[in-house]
């Protein structure tokens, strides 16, 4: 082998070793960057339950404030306040079971009518509801509400600030957060807020969460419950779904 060839081989080997070192260092740097980002991001790292919530609604159609098959035979309307702790309890206990049993199977469509009177000091509850309705314009209200409940705080405190809402909204997959923020005070959002409140009062409800259920397109009647257990909700729904009902 000539001196020239030996030199070339030696250089190639040296460069390959160098490439190995460079590659290893680059991989290490990227892994550190991913770890620093928490596998997600920075400002909203302390939002709980994002993966769970986004997975829960994956594949279920959503239009505005409605979740599920638009042609479902039964409709369940929930009147809830995002600052209401009992609404949170319902959402974390019964709601996921109802979604799996009835919504995912196309039997029930759910409608969420957001109220704004629980812990509404300094307009806190209204800010939450407005954001929810603005998010509904992008058909992601249910993820937002679920995530809000999982990160809900003491209802007597004022905590629904723009940074708080942005943290929650930023974890909703596919949501344009800026667009939702910009839509919060639109007349359509204000109108939807008033409509929800009017329907709540017209049904004679006084507390949240309250529910109305019935055949889709027909008259809905209040669903009375005494505890947050699946049977309290499944019973009336199954009756409506029964053949010949």
């Amino acid at each position: 082998m000539s001196a020239r060839n030996e030199e070339l081989v030696a250089r190639r080997n040296r460069r390959l070793r160098l490439l190995g070192i460079v590659l290893g260092a680059a991989v290490l740097l990227v892994l550190i960057a991913i770890a620093v980002s928490g596998g997600s991001g920075s400002s909203s790292r302390n939002v709980r339950g994002a993966s769970l919530v986004n997975a829960r609604f994956r594949g279920i159609p959503q239009t505005g404030i409605t979740l599920g098959n638009p042609n479902a035979p039964v409709t369940l309307v929930e009147f809830a306040d995002l600052k209401c702790p009992v609404c949170r309890d319902y959402t974390t206990s019964v709601f996921p079971q109802l979604v799996d049993r009835y919504v995912r199977t196309g039997k029930v469509r759910m409608v969420l009518q957001l109220q704004h009177f629980v812990g509404n000091q300094n307009g806190d509850s209204e800010r939450a509801a407005r954001m929810g309705l603005a998010v509904a314009q992008q058909n992601r209200l249910w993820q937002f509400a679920d995530l809000f409940y999982l990160n809900q705080r003491d209802e007597t405190r004022t905590y629904v600030t723009d940074p708080f809402l942005r943290r929650i909204a930023a974890r909703v997959h596919g949501l344009n957060v800026n667009r939702a923020f910009a839509a919060r005070n639109q007349p359509t959002v204000t109108q939807a807020l008033h409509d929800a409140s009017d329907q709540f009062k017209a049904a004679g409800f006084r507390a949240t969460p309250s529910f109305a259920v019935g055949k889709s397109g027909g008259t809905l009647t209040p669903l009375d419950y005494t505890s947050l257990s699946l049977s309290q909700f499944a019973g009336p729904i199954d009756k409506l779904l029964a053949p010949g009902s």
Binding site: V36, S37, G41, S42, S43, R45, A170, N176, V177
Partner: peptide, 9 residues
């Protein structure tokens, strides 16, 4: 505007 648009701020 997603939280992925920043790395450690």
């Amino acid at each position: 505007t997603s939280h992925w648009s920043k790395l450690a701020g």
